[in-house]
Design a protein around this nucleic acid. Structure first.
Lengths: 89, 89
DNA sequence: CGTAAACATCCAAACTTTTAAATATTTGGT
DNA sequence: ACCAAATATTTAAAAGTTTGGATGTTTACG
């Protein structure tokens, strides 16, 4: 297990807005940046920034379709992180 | 599950020094702040600060014995966090 | 082509975290 | 009582994060 991945992924989760995005993605399956803007009430550039952190962490997948960016959970990496923590404790 | 706990706990893990402390605790079972100073090469106040974050996150238990502070993993909270992530993905 | 919608990038302000020097506290040994 | 060891606290600097305004890019639609 890459410790850098653990560091990045936990860092990506450790924010109330990003956590709420992850929860919503878990619930809904997929969302666009505009959906996230509505969900969080944050400005568009700020949403863009959080989305970047989430995708760069590897926890979230992004698929561009026309003008929209569809986000979804990367379930494998979430399972990887979960497994790491389970073994840790 | 408390989202504040998830936020705090992931934030506590998201640092290379704190992650290495957690790994070492997982391996060795228990350590003092002096051990951590040797492990990380950080200054004593800095270690004290990181230890505080880890204990306040709930991921690490601290037991004072004489002049020493013995740290150990809080396995239950690690399992809780792991379970949260597993359900998320 | 012109316009608007969706997202990205750049920038700077506000805020938070990380770090260590100095100092304080608590405890154990002599 | 004295001294040293282990940790905590205070303080301040450096570095990093978060935020939104302004602006840029890409794509859809009439």
């Amino acid at each position: 297990m890459e410790h850098r991945f653990v560091e990045k992924a936990t860092g990506a989760i450790a924010d109330k807005y990003r956590l709420s995005i992850l929860l919503e993605l878990s619930d809904k399956g997929s969302m666009t940046c505009t959906d996230i803007q509505e969900l969080t009430g944050l400005s568009q550039p700020c949403v863009s920034h959080h989305v970047k952190q989430l995708t760069e962490s590897g926890l979230v997948n992004a698929r561009k379709e026309g003008r929209n960016l569809y986000l979804s959970l990367n379930k494998e990496s979430l399972q990887q992180l979960s497994g790491f923590l389970e073994k840790l404790g």
